[in-house]
Design a protein around this nucleic acid. Structure first.
Lengths: 139, 139
DNA sequence: TATTGTTATACTCTATAACTATA
DNA sequence: TATAGTTATAGAGTATAACAATA
């Protein structure tokens, strides 16, 4: 890895993330209506994937502080995408689950994110995409 | 691309960027001393690579608003990494150039960023790294 | 009129620390 | 004592709009 490679890698990663953000913002009418943000969308997808989870698990999985997760969940709850229920075994934890409205919304999110990723990944062939995703998984 | 693939890709990209940030912050004593931030480091590398540039070019290349670039350059100027000179041909533009101090610092930045990327990329073999960088370049 | 760069302002994302209620 | 979650607050990073100087 030469200094040029290093700079290239940093720049390309930065650009990719900014392209993703830029593509999601204006395009995602359905997401913008709801204004859940990128992290909000990821939390909803995580819940769709794994079922009800405690807040501490969510914050660990997403790599964000639990205080941030508290506010995020409150926001999602306020918009009706998520509901909480007490955990019978440990009364400190409240389980966070998708509502039917949240389930419908998360399908929109996945569809829109899918279109945007499809567009961004379009320069790569099928094999290259798989290799890219696999390499990303190892990192 | 199934919904699972989409979610995976989003999550993995998010994690990679957060790992990069997390690895840079505490580790980079030399960078932390100067507190130029990630974007500041990238601007210095860009200047090291391409020589003096107008602010408008910098803001376009880095994909950030020019008002943000104004403040960033003022900060770098205050720390002595960068100096401005008037453009003889167009008196509206002021060219931004590395100072000798900035040149020395940018080598530190590249070294530290190199170590961090080396560590993060360590799960990939040489061929995989090249493929990853190449695929990133196509996006 | 259009463009370079500046200032002022506000909004989002994030981390830290102090707190509560349970365990 | 330790853990789950909350609140308050502060700091980055970013975008928008209004502006001055030059083209």
């Amino acid at each position: 890895m030469t200094p040029q490679d290093i700079q290239l890698l940093a720049r390309r990663l930065d650009r990719l993330m900014r392209r993703l953000n830029a593509a999601l913002h204006p395009r995602a009418q359905a997401m913008d209506k709801e204004k859940v943000g990128a992290l909000g969308g990821m939390v909803l997808m995580e819940l769709a994937d794994r079922g009800p989870l405690p807040l501490a698990v969510l914050s660990a999985e997403m790599g964000r502080d639990k205080s941030q997760m508290t506010r995020l969940v409150q926001m999602l709850e306020g918009k009706g995408h998520v509901a909480r229920s007490a955990d019978a075994k440990d009364r400190r934890v409240s389980l966070i689950a998708l509502t039917p409205r949240g389930e419908a919304f998360v399908r929109d999110v996945e569809m829109i994110l899918g279109e945007v990723l499809e567009e961004i990944l379009s320069p790569l062939g099928e094999a290259e995409r798989r290799a890219f995703l696999a390499n990303l998984g190892k990192l």
